[in-house]
Design a protein around this nucleic acid. Structure first.
Lengths: 225, 225
DNA sequence: AATGCGCTAATCCAAAGGGATTATGTGGAG
DNA sequence: CTCCACATAATCCCTTTGGATTAGCGCATT
């Protein structure tokens, strides 16, 4: 059966360009088009469930109601529908908000202009949300830049020891990070400063660094503090 | 110029399969291969910077040192190198940790088996990290499932000069934080190591600390990185 | 009993760091 | 013009590190 598509964009020219592209391929059926988020939701309300589109291509920037809000509402009201953002913007904030709102995919127009149909077919085959490489890269950067963080760890994760540091070594790394000297560490832990030093050097080996400063930098950067 | 590639995988068969695939295309040069993270880091240590690979294809599951740790250390020690995870696993936790550790791309072996070369070429052309659709989808789900949250970075407008450090001193503090020696700082800034040292000692005075480690700790704590 | 690993400890040596001080050149503020 | 802050540079002296090595002890696995 054909894939039922809805197109939401405030520019008539965009709507028709996309529509034409899709109709050149068999297997697509344009369900309806809308000019903005509000228009989309109203048109959805008039449909009976069997007439719902299975995919909505949604522009982000629109008057009346933008794509983020439309997806937020739509993914709640019609959770069976897949919402794919199709926009020229790659602003991190927008990407993040759209995804949080429930977007199933996120395509940059220029990246996929020639390939919307192919992308949608692929999506329909393997159930994986389409994401432009550029967007995926942006998301990856979001994660890397610590602008994003893992909130919950699910199961009782065995909390892997970073770099195979032993407990003692982690303990000593913590003191190292506080700027303590070997002798101070030794005194603090009631061991010889020589031993403290030995541990520290062992840590260097595991971290593949060769100075306190490098160890600290690595520890901070990788968050194994 | 050819793209210099290193391959890190514990299975010799995998290494040669990947190697063969790449060598069938012009424009790739296999820099070296390694059996695990430790092996990789050791081989890197023996290279001069001009011999560094520009891309490292890294398996995730390896004995001795796994891909996450290797990338964590590698992305710190050799930040110019791009690390692409190439694995059969798509566990969310692993994806997240690998990305946090500094992975530039993340490919599923089965998805890209026929297409590693193409993916790498694309990456080299547009500077965008390669990510398998399946992985991108997983990341998107991570964001959606509230397992991840946006951490608002607060950017203070006032741009306070921390601790009355001069511009030069801040510049030097940054290098200090990267774990550089006096002589390295001196070389980097084209000044005498003695001068570098003088600056560092002046910084200590202003920060009221008396060692690199303490300075770093304070710098990180106060966020004047 | 033997093996392996982690924690403890020590020693020697060379390199780097920390502290104090002195000195020169420059540019801006008074 | 002079004063002062800053960047530059050097020297002396002592402490701290980093690297390599050796070794005993306890504990768990085999």
């Amino acid at each position: 059966m054909p894939v039922r598509i809805a197109i939401v964009d405030d520019k008539a020219s965009n709507r028709s360009i996309i529509k034409d592209k899709l109709l050149r391929h068999a297997g697509f059926e344009i369900c309806f088009t809308a000019e903005n988020g509000k228009d989309f939701l109203e048109k959805m309300k008039d449909l009976s469930p069997e007439d719902y589109p299975s995919v909505v291509l949604m522009d982000l920037e629109m008057p009346e109601m933008d794509g983020v809000d439309a997806v937020a509402a739509g993914s709640y009201l019609y959770p069976s529908v897949k919402y794919v953002m199709l926009t020229i913007f790659d602003d991190e904030e927008k990407i993040f908000r759209a995804i949080k709102a429930g977007a199933f995919g996120y395509l940059l127009k220029e990246e996929s202009a020639e390939n919307i149909a192919g992308t949608l077919i692929q999506m329909n085959e393997n159930g994986v949300g389409p994401i432009s490489p550029g967007i995926a890269h942006k998301i990856l950067q979001l994660v890397q830049n610590n602008t994003v963080s893992l909130v919950q760890k699910k199961t009782s994760e065995k909390e892997k020891t970073p770099f195979n540091l032993t407990e003692r070594e982690q303990e000593i790394l913590k003191l190292l990070i506080q700027g303590m000297l070997y002798k101070e560490i030794g005194h603090k832990l009631d061991i010889s400063p020589n031993t403290a030093k030995k541990h520290v050097l062992n840590i260097y080996g595991k971290l593949h660094v060769n100075s306190k400063a490098q160890a600290l930098a690595l520890a901070y950067e990788k968050g194994l503090i």
